[in-house]
């Protein structure tokens, strides 16, 4: 009962602080503090609820237990991270996004191919591509190569559609200006159209980061060597070691947000001129 009361208290406290902070003028500090306080409140309430209601750790372990498990099994978690995130997801991400980018440049000179590929690409991007996973695991074997292949297939079409859209972004006036400078196709591409396409390309790259991790993890459900995040999750669920599962999820969340943040950071450096990146006053 005391735990439940504590949970209620934490909830009221967190909401009260955030309410005060949110109604002050917005600064960088409050913009960071408010979501962090919200997250900490949720974790505190989780802990109190699990202890107060006596929920079995087999169903939902409290955050403290997950943290303890995380600290004791860093070796396993690191091995899984290397196998899934670095070997599977990252390799596939680079190959897939690179291939999509090159394809977009290649079909750039042919409006016919663009009109044909864009609707098909849009259609394929809406399909449950993840279903290709068992087939690709069958073709490329159980190790990380098949995971990379799944990631390639998953990120290719969103990236292609975004890049093609971005390359069409420079308007007629700007292209005319390049022509009056006697700029050839390559110069126009490098100096005008690729920079103008950057916001779209980065949008594709950001969507692809999440898809890449999902693809690599889910592909492991269809067969993998005895390491990897997807493998660990599906076997630990079978052993009812849910604290390890949650520790893997923490790793996945950290990897996902870190990866996304990195791409967003590069985007801010490269597309500093775009209205959405300028500092808001």
């Amino acid at each position: 009962m005391a735990w439940l009361a504590a949970g209620l208290l934490f909830w009221a406290l967190g909401w009260w602080i955030n309410h005060l902070l949110a109604h002050r003028p917005r600064t960088t500090a409050t913009r960071l503090a408010v979501p962090i306080i919200f997250g900490l409140t949720v974790i505190a309430i989780w802990e109190c609820l699990v202890r107060g209601l006596g929920i079995s750790p087999v169903l939902l372990p409290p955050p403290s237990q997950i943290a303890a498990r995380f600290a004791t099994s860093t070796a396993i978690l690191w091995e899984d991270f290397v196998q899934t995130a670095l070997k599977g997801a990252l390799t596939g991400y680079i190959i897939g996004c690179g291939a999509a980018f090159l394809t977009a440049i290649a079909i750039d000179r042919s409006p016919f191919l663009q009109r044909g590929l864009l609707p098909v690409g849009n259609f394929v991007a809406a399909l449950p591509i993840i279903g290709m996973a068992p087939i690709l695991v069958m073709w490329f074997g159980f190790d990380w190569q098949s995971k990379a292949a799944v990631v390639v297939v998953m990120v290719f079409f969103p990236m292609l559609v975004n890049t093609v859209q971005g390359l069409a972004e420079a308007d007629a006036m700007q292209r005319d200006l390049m022509r009056t400078y006697a700029a050839g196709y390559m110069t126009t591409l490098l100096k005008l159209r690729l920079p103008a396409a950057m916001p779209f390309i980065f949008n594709g790259l950001k969507i692809a980061t999440t898809l890449a991790l999902i693809g690599a993890i889910v592909a492991e459900f269809f067969g993998s060597p005895v390491k990897g995040m997807g493998f660990r999750i599906s076997t630990s669920v079978g052993q009812l070691a849910l604290d390890l599962v949650w520790a893997e999820i923490v790793v996945a969340a950290l990897a996902g947000s870190g990866f996304y943040g990195l791409v967003a950071l590069i985007e801010r450096r490269i597309t500093f001129w775009h209205p959405s990146q300028r500092s808001r006053i």
């Binding site: 955030n18 902070l21 949110a22 409050t30 913009r31 408010v34 979501p35 306080i37 919200f38 997250g39 993840i130 980061t209 999440t210 991790l213 999902i214 993890i217 889910v218 995040m229 997807g230 999750i233 599962v245 893997e248 999820i249 996945a252 969340a253 996902g256 947000s257 990866f259 996304y260």
Partner: peptide, 19 residues
């Protein structure tokens, strides 16, 4: 707006299908 929105965005960088 200030407390939930960042978490809504962060929730999607988590490969939820994994769980």
């Amino acid at each position: 707006d200030m407390s939930v929105m960042p978490w809504v965005i962060a929730s999607q960088t988590i490969p939820i299908l994994a769980i």
